[in-house]
Design a protein around this nucleic acid. Structure first.
Lengths: 133, 133
DNA sequence: GCTTGACCTAGAGTCGGCTCTACTTCGTAG
DNA sequence: CTACGAAGTAGAGCCGACTCTAGGTCAAGC
């Protein structure tokens, strides 16, 4: 289809799990590190680097980083060397939030597991009675 | 203000961290296990049990259970004994999802931590050079 | 008797993150 | 030469979970 290092939007969608719509949306939102190249007919041509970048963005999104903050980070990367401290700040802050999220989630998990245990015991006891009859 | 076992919506908001708006919204959405009692002037009067239930709902929400599913669970509880197996199913399913979420979040965390490490090293090396000059 | 503040209802508005629509343009296959 | 499929653009629409507005009641305090 395309040069073996150039991928169409559809192929990128397949490989990343994002929808074609989402890919265009992300681009419009400025969260692609490099301007996506265009092939004949104005079609987007993605490189492996674009995919790698997208995969990281997906991780950031999955862990709850809002699009505008991903954009800020992306812009720093686009600007090139010299702002590593700012990038580090964004990442560290996010890391902190993710850490908190995990703690919270663990608390929820503990409660849910406790309740599941209680119901399981109860359901088992009912089943045992039924068998005993 | 109120009888020492009856709490106003404002007090419940304080104790749970939910907004007054959210409390009314939750009630309208049917995720309160028992009909909230009303005091003089049609004001809501919450009991400690209502608060306990709300705290669990908050845990379920925090861990990503959608409101409609909390409602389903609530309805089962409201119906009383006999449907414990269905309640258990809902909780187990949710437990599974939370488990997956935690795994995903950990993956994200690993990547972020890796990147933070890289940037930290880089930033340190720059700082070292500056001192060395 | 007037203001304040906490509460009430019904329903509109907001926000984030996509998702979808409408319409166009290509390149290839039948 | 027509149809199809995959792409393009601009912009509207949707969904979930609140959040806020408008307009009203009521009790307490000045």
């Amino acid at each position: 289809m395309l040069d073996d290092m150039g991928l169409s939007i559809g192929q990128v969608a397949e490989r990343t799990g994002l929808s074609v719509h989402a890919l265009r949306f992300y681009e419009k939102e400025g969260i692609l590190a490099r301007q996506v190249q265009r092939g004949p007919g104005g079609r987007r041509v993605y490189t492996q680097q674009d995919i790698d970048w997208l995969r990281m963005c997906i991780m950031l999104r999955m862990s709850g980083m809002p699009v505008p903050e991903i954009r800020r980070y992306t812009e720093l990367v686009r600007q090139g060397d010299g702002n590593e401290l700012q990038r580090l700040d964004i990442l560290k802050e996010h890391q902190e939030r993710v850490q908190q999220q995990m703690v919270q989630l663990q608390e929820c998990m503990d409660l849910i597991t406790f309740k599941v245990g209680k119901y399981q015991d109860y359901v088992n006891s009912i089943a045992a009675k039924a068998v005993g009859q």
